[in-house]
Write a protein that binds this DNA or RNA. Structure first.
Lengths: 199, 199, 199, 199
DNA sequence: AATGAATGAGCGTTCATTCAT
DNA sequence: TATGAATGAACGCTCATTCAT
């Protein structure tokens, strides 16, 4: 059921081969650049590192904000995909915590970027919303599975789970280079997610 | 105890009365402006809102980064001060959690600012480090007190406590406008800070 | 008489049928686009509206200026043609004034375009000059006919007639939407063209 | 009555001496530059020729359009002023025709600029409208005086007079370098403005 | 021959910082 | 000393033109 039977919807044009390559490279480079330097990094820097002219960036993404959004979407999609994969491979509890680690441990710079993205008004457009919903759905499935298994407190819902993810990422970013502290900080969150002990 | 007995270290000049007033107002205004508009807000905007010329800002703070750092220092000092006050008024456990809430609930925009500050390379200079150490000292006292009282897990140290503060602030910022979710998210952190139940 | 007996001069290549169609469509579209949006309109816009690739435009017209010039030439040729037709149908006086109206009343935007064209350095190339000469010839015939008929002041020559046309077009463009004023403005020019009353 | 008793209205701040000089120079230079190269001339070019940094231009005129509008206003004001002066010195008929010549003979490039300004959407703001009204008032006085004196056709109103001015300027611009033709073209307009001969 | 992706110079505009008043 | 005008590097973005498919 995970194999997608993409029906032949025409869509917004079947990009030429080289253009597709450039677009993909741009997204990759942009993610790296924004992660390293924050969203204030110049579009020119992205172009330079992708070895394309500045106009090529703007051909693919009509504004800088569109580029940021595209990077965000890509990341959301990757995470949702990963979540689905993990769920297929193991039980929901393991999958949930594995995904949690994946998100939270992604090189801090990546999270810095994600955070900044959220910070900025980036009124996520329809596409980003859609990607967000997909991730939301996966998280929902993982969460309720883990709750049924008694591994996670029952009162938790997806919105705060996401917030906890974001916050934990931030937390660990702050402890980059101090693995012992990071481990303890993570234990705090992990234990807090457990169902509270009766009594 | 609040009256500071500034010892007669020569220091960086004994600022004239009006200049001191200007400096104070600038810091206040700057914090508000950066909170509202992010650290990208223009220095001119700060000057305008403080009713001083732009050059006056640069006389007091030679670069924009210096201004940002000064705001950060002020905030750190205020928090340390607050911590000391709370400790004087109640037991360490109550004081710790009260300070936690104070920091974490400060209007999200302020945290956005703090976060951005941390994000940016702002290699906190000596002064900021000093203010940080003061806060660190207070937190240390509060933490060990609360640990002795059995209210907080024993393995926690100050660095991760700070990181948890930052992360939680971020978390709650993400849940601004969703108080029920925010309450649950906070419960997660709070419970995670408790000593783990003996199994 | 309208069927052109193009003599077999080698000329600039005998364009394939579809290419000829493309070229014609491009000119038509370009005139419309430049009329609507001014000569600053982008070449891409022309291509888009003509349903051709941008490169096709540049294949037919090696620079944007060449395209503008081609549009101008087309317009000059049409006017000359129209003048010849009018002269064949009626006396020179009627024909002259009819052509005058035709030129001058062409939708203001078209004149805006023509004016802009003239404004810009567009050092009309040889082809444009040729088209200009053709129009010049027709106007000359009309003018001298009308002068012989006593309908137009004798001292007038073609160069100033053209200037008067351009100026009047500009004048009426300025009065677009104010028909009463436009009528009075035109009366001024019309009366000024008449032979001055003796006495 | 012409001596203005400017009351001490505070206005939008009493510009510093050097700033005033710069502002004036910028307007002068901008008029020249836009006249020579059209309104498409770059703001940088204006700055360069005025020997100021680009930011100085934008400090004085927050957008390029504002600069264009300021130049237009200045021109309108100069013309109105000139009209008033002429009227004070001689009868309305002489004054009207003198002003006519002044406007129409201004170096063609200036008219090219004025025309372009009008062409562009330049939705003249309030200030420009005001300046326009002032000129309108002067022209109205001149026109009705000349009409009463029997020197100009009675049916003419100010709007078309302005249009005729614009059109004539365009006309003469087109004949730059051909004085004989220009003289004849102007005679056409001049004669057309006269009251039509009875009979 | 036709396409459209890629290019880079150039534009309008902003902002931290310096300088003249 | 405080002011605010001046500065120029940098940014996001556009467009005529070229190149690979």
């Amino acid at each position: 059921m995970t194999t997608e039977q993409t029906p032949p919807v025409p869509g917004p044009k079947p990009l030429r081969a080289d253009a597709r390559r450039n677009r993909a490279r741009l997204l990759e480079v942009a993610e790296a650049v924004f992660a390293e330097q924050g969203t204030g990094a110049s579009t020119e820097e992205v172009a330079r590192r992708a070895n394309v002219g500045i106009a090529t960036v703007f051909r693919h993404f009509p504004t800088k904000e569109a580029l940021l959004e595209a990077v965000l979407i890509r990341r959301l999609e990757q995470l949702a995909e990963e979540g689905r994969r993990l769920l297929a491979e193991s039980g929901p509890t393991e999958a949930l915590f594995a995904l949690f680690d994946l998100i939270v441990e992604a090189s801090p710079v990546k999270n810095a970027f994600a955070a900044a993205l959220a910070d900025a008004g980036v009124d996520v457009g329809a596409a980003a919303a859609e990607a967000g919903h997909a991730l939301h759905a996966v998280l929902s499935e993982l969460l309720s599975g883990a709750q049924r298994a008694g591994a996670v407190r029952k009162d938790l819902e997806v919105p705060e789970l996401i917030a906890i993810l974001v916050g934990t990422a931030r937390m660990l970013e702050h402890l980059d280079g101090h693995p012992a502290s990071a481990a303890r900080a993570r234990a705090v969150v992990r234990d807090g997610l457990r169902p509270p002990v009766a009594g």
